[in-house]
Design a protein around this nucleic acid. Structure first.
Lengths: 201, 201
DNA sequence: GACAGAAGCTAATGGGATTAGTTACATTCT
DNA sequence: AGAATGTAACTAATCCCATTAGCTTCTGTC
């Protein structure tokens, strides 16, 4: 009966912590309620339901991640910025697997919330900003952003899913992949001339 | 009462179809039972439960995907093989989003089943085989495999999650990313020398 | 034609999500 | 202080899903 002092933010945070502990897909309203010492139904005064909570966790994660990356890359450029960016990104994902997972599940987020959120937009800006040092023009810059995001996200997901055998430490591959990425960004290939019979429309 | 002719494989297939339609995370035993015109409990004679079914779908997907890739890359080498590989990979993921998702969720698969499954092993072999044309030695080859898998998986996930704004068709970025990857593989950078304050201007 | 085994069913239990309606606390106004 | 008001949190109820136990019915075999 003593008021637990719930707010939307506190519920979201508890959900995020729980997601980090047990996995985003195993997040349940009941477990969040238990963690907060409150009955399930009480949560509905603060979040619309499980879907809504998930969306909020995703936005929280986007915010936190972009702050981390901003701090890590401040004042850096070129390879240093790239490495700092990627490392901050990966560290966040490893520290907060549940929240990270939240950002990658295609979930319906309340458009109003999404519009108000800074994280996602900030993340894009940071990425473009970081790559600016490589002097790519459009549309190459956009393609490079997508390549970078794909690689980071893919590596982290595969690593988290246990997709890399133990033959070689992921750490070393990670480092070498960043080298490769840096090299690639410095010598971004020109539009390639059609070649052989495979004409990919 | 008319026998529905269930088998483990049929249940798995129904689950896979359902996952493709409604999303892997929304897959439920009840829905599979309904689709098969059978009571929930009947499924348990063929699969251990939801987790088991999920694992089986993941293995099915790995099999199907590797077959597709094998067919697509047969007889090709170099850039053609790379493009065929990547395209087959992506097409599979787009045609079967649920099954594809199944392969990326860190799920506990019965070790016995896993050992019997050909798909995952075959996929690795295909990847190494395809990259052999680029004449990389170990450990670079392993790193390149990881980079390739990361990029493909990341791109596909982000695309599926709606992560790319509409500013530029994903199709074009995809094509350019493959160009970039090809270039990178041809000129895989040597182990990089430690390098001052990132002043490569 | 009886039997063994499998295929499928009924019934029951336990959780989780969600809603409606209720109680108790805290703030503010007089 | 005492009443009014909004809201935090609760109780109770409903529905859906996962899973288990035990029973029935079909199919093929000797």
């Amino acid at each position: 009966m003593a008021r637990a002092g719930l707010t939307t933010d506190r519920v979201t945070l508890a959900g995020a912590e729980l997601a980090d502990e047990v996995g985003f897909d195993r997040l349940t309203m009941s477990a969040v309620a238990r963690r907060l010492g409150v009955k399930d139904a009480s949560l509905y005064a603060h979040v619309r339901g499980l879907e809504d909570l998930r969306g909020r966790i995703a936005l929280l994660a986007a915010d936190e991640k972009s702050v981390r990356i901003a701090e890590a890359t401040a004042g850096l450029a070129g390879r240093d910025a790239l490495v700092a960016y990627a490392t901050a990104y990966r560290d966040y994902a490893r520290e907060h697997p549940g929240r990270y997972m939240a950002t990658q599940i295609p979930t319906e987020i309340d458009p109003e919330l999404l519009a108000a959120a800074r994280g996602p937009r900030r993340a894009i800006e940071l990425t473009y900003g970081m790559l600016r040092a490589y002097a790519l023009g459009e549309p190459d810059l956009t393609d490079a952003v997508r390549l970078l995001r794909s690689m980071l996200h893919g590596f982290i997901s595969l690593e988290a899913a246990g997709g890399f055998a133990h033959s070689r430490p992921a750490e070393e591959s990670w480092s070498r992949c960043l080298d490769a990425l840096h090299t690639l960004l410095e010598r971004w290939p020109a539009e390639h001339e059609p070649h052989g019979e495979g004409d990919r429309t």
